[in-house]
């Protein structure tokens, strides 16, 4: 009977994590989309939604603590709950990257972009997709998927390097471009960091299933 209560509570927590993750995912895509469309009102909505993400993270943290206090979990269950702490804090930080992109667009105001956004939306798409699958793997404790996803981070890193080089050529060509190039550099940086954090979620999935806390390196840093 107690076990059943516990299972129900865990399922609720998992549902909430998926919900929190989808908010973060959508907010990231929206932040880049708003920038692409030069829509500062949409960026304001991205910034406002981050507050909701933060609140939800704290509510979830509280829920996890209640489960720990009342169910006194051991072994796999303990690893799962400890990992949920870690994952929701990753999600909150990932939400901050989306908000950061929103803030950049608001600061840019109506100013034209240095160049049309091509690689940056692509980076956002890959990063959001990685997060989506990593969270499903987390709640389903699917180790195989969790082990595969971090390698995809290389695509994001490659795009980041490409964006970086391209923006540098703009700066070299005309130092007047520094300000506008710098804005975009920060956007690309946020996306690169966002994808890195997906790897941390995958590490936790493996930890829950095996008890081993291993750092997964994507092929390039490995």
């Amino acid at each position: 009977m107690l076990r059943k209560t516990f299972e129900t509570e865990i399922q609720q927590l998992k549902d909430e994590i998926i919900l929190l993750g989808s908010l973060v995912e959508q907010n990231l895509l929206d932040s880049v989309d708003a920038m692409k469309k030069r829509d500062t009102a949409a960026s304001q909505r991205v910034i406002a939604l981050d507050k909701q993400i933060n609140d939800k993270r704290f509510a979830l943290e509280n829920q996890v603590m209640i489960v720990i206090a009342t169910q006194q979990p051991m072994a796999h269950d303990l690893r799962l709950l400890a990992s949920i702490f870690e994952v929701i804090s990753e999600l909150e930080r990932m939400g901050d990257y989306a908000k950061g992109i929103g803030v950049i667009n608001v600061r840019m105001g109506g100013e034209d972009l240095l160049k049309p956004l091509v690689d940056i939306p692509h980076m956002a798409q890959i990063a959001a997709d990685m997060l989506h699958r990593a969270l499903l793997a987390f709640v389903n404790e699917d180790i195989e998927t969790a082990q595969r996803i971090p390698a995809e981070d290389d695509q994001v890193d490659n795009l980041y390097n490409q964006v970086y080089r391209e923006l540098m050529t703009y700066i070299v060509a005309d130092p007047q471009n520094i300000e506008r190039a710098n804005w975009l550099l920060w956007v690309a940086h946020n996306l690169e960091r966002f994808a890195d954090r997906v790897t941390n979620i995958c590490e936790r999935t493996i930890f829950i299933a095996t008890g081993n806390l291993l750092e997964i390196n994507s092929s390039k840093d490995g």
Partner: peptide, 13 residues
């Protein structure tokens, strides 16, 4: 935290 036998795992959880 990480028992090696499934039966131990089932019991402690």
């Amino acid at each position: 935290t990480a028992p090696s036998d499934k039966r131990t795992e089932d019991y402690v959880t």
